[in-house]
Simulated scan of single mutants.
Amino acid sequence: MFKATAITLIPEAWPGPLGASILGRARAEGIWDLETVDLRTFGLGKHRKVDDTPAGGGAGLVLRPDVAAAAVDSVQKCPDLSRSVPAMTRPVVYLSPRGRRFDQEMARQWAAGPGVILFCGRFEGLDERAIEARDMQEVSLGDFVLAGGDVAAMAMLEAAIRLLPGVAGNSASITGESFENGLLEYPHYTLPREWEGRQTPPVLLSGDHRRIEEWRISRSKALTFDRRPDLYAAYSETPTPTAPETGDEPD
Rank of each mutant, 00 (worst) to 15 (best):
E249L: 05
S173A: 15
M156F: 10
R122N: 05
A70E: 07
P86V: 14
Y94L: 13
K3S: 09
C78M: 09
F123C: 01
I131Q: 03
A222R: 07
E194W: 05
R162Q: 01
I22T: 01
D33Y: 02
E196V: 03
G60W: 13
T5V: 15
P114H: 09
H47V: 01
M106L: 15
I217C: 04
M154E: 05
A243F: 07
R219F: 12
D208I: 00
G182C: 08
R101Q: 15
Q137C: 06
D51A: 02
G56N: 10
G148Q: 13
T53N: 08
E177K: 02
W215R: 01
V72W: 02
D251N: 14
A153R: 04
R198I: 11
P192M: 04
P54F: 13
R228P: 11
P97W: 11
R193E: 14
M88K: 14
F144W: 14
D135I: 02
S84R: 14
E185V: 02
T224K: 04
T175M: 03
R27Q: 15
A111C: 09
M88G: 12
L157V: 04
R90P: 00
T36K: 04
F2G: 03
S220V: 00
A70N: 07
A153I: 09
P241Y: 12
I31W: 04
F2V: 02
L191Y: 05
I7A: 07
G24K: 01
E132D: 12
T41D: 13
G121S: 08
V72G: 00
A13C: 12
F119H: 02
L183S: 04
I117V: 14
L39A: 03
R210Q: 14
S220D: 02
L61I: 07
R100V: 08
P54E: 08
R90M: 03
R64H: 07
E177L: 02
V67Y: 03
I212V: 12
G125Q: 12
A6I: 15
L18C: 03
V145A: 10
G121Q: 07
G149V: 06
I212A: 01
R25G: 03
L163H: 04
L18R: 03
V116D: 05
R210K: 09
D103A: 06
D150Y: 09
A159D: 06
R134C: 04
Q109V: 10
G176N: 08
A152W: 06
S171Q: 11
A71W: 01
E138N: 04
S178W: 03
E12F: 06
T238F: 11
T5M: 02
D226M: 10
I131W: 07
G99N: 10
S74V: 06
R101N: 10
D66T: 05
G60D: 10
R216M: 02
W32R: 05
H47P: 00
T89L: 13
G207M: 03
F102Y: 11
L126F: 11
D143L: 10
R25A: 14
M88T: 12
F179M: 10
V116H: 01
E105H: 15
W110G: 01
L223T: 06
L163I: 05
R211S: 12
D73K: 11
V72D: 00
V203D: 08
L9W: 07
R216K: 13
W110A: 10
R40I: 06
R83Q: 12
V145N: 09
V50D: 01
P79T: 11
R198K: 13
A130V: 11
L39F: 06
E29Q: 15
F225T: 04
K77D: 10
L205M: 11
